[in-house]
């Protein structure tokens, strides 16, 4: 499933398979990632972002989400990958991390995958620090390799500024 267009907003429903854990898979910087569906509130189309002064490069700014001020993080940049070219077809995944609402700007959302937690492989030791910090495990679906991201560590300091 790809999301395109201006006004498309998809509200995700809860898990349908009981044994399997569900993840929202998305693509950015030519790699596949996924996050626990329970941390995701909704997916929104691109909207204009108000930039914040003195913010880290990966914080693009803030948007108005039905009256709340929500910071938007460039997912690729956060992982140390090249920042996303800002395009209208990009989507924002609204996640709740430690009671804070954060938007993750990614290229596109691919699908929802149900995975038996047993089959998730650990991140290999060869990975760099950044990778190990965020990539909680690896899921293989056919020849597709999906990096499972742990959002807990994604937003550094929960108390003050990012």
């Amino acid at each position: 499933m790809h999301l395109k267009g201006d006004k498309m907003v998809i509200e995700l429903s809860g898990p349908q398979h009981i044994q399997n854990k569900e993840f929202v898979a998305f693509r950015t910087a030519e790699q596949d990632f996924c996050v626990d569906i329970m941390t995701i509130r909704e997916i929104r189309s691109w909207t204009r972002i108000t930039s914040l002064p003195h913010a880290p490069a990966f914080v693009l700014g803030v948007i108005n989400l039905r009256g709340s001020v929500v910071p938007i993080v460039d997912f690729s940049a956060r992982l140390g990958l090249p920042a996303l070219e800002h395009e209208a077809r990009n989507v924002i995944i609204i996640a709740v991390i430690n009671h804070r609402i954060v938007g993750l700007l990614v290229e596109s959302v691919s699908d929802i995958i149900g995975v038996d937690p047993e089959t998730i492989q650990a991140t290999p030791d060869v990975a760099s620090d950044t990778t190990r910090n965020f990539v909680a495990g690896i899921i293989t679906i056919g020849d597709r390799l999906v990096r499972q991201i742990d959002l807990e560590n994604f937003i550094p300091d929960t108390d003050s500024r990012m």
Binding site: T50, L52, H54, A55, V69, I101, D157
Partner: peptide, 24 residues
């Protein structure tokens, strides 16, 4: 609209507001 709830304190900025066009 506070920035602290979802983000944190920003130097030089007290808070944010939402304008008539929905922009922050």
């Amino acid at each position: 609209k506070g920035l602290e709830d979802n983000y944190g304190h920003v130097a030089g900025v007290v808070a944010a507001t939402i304008l008539g066009d929905g922009q922050i």
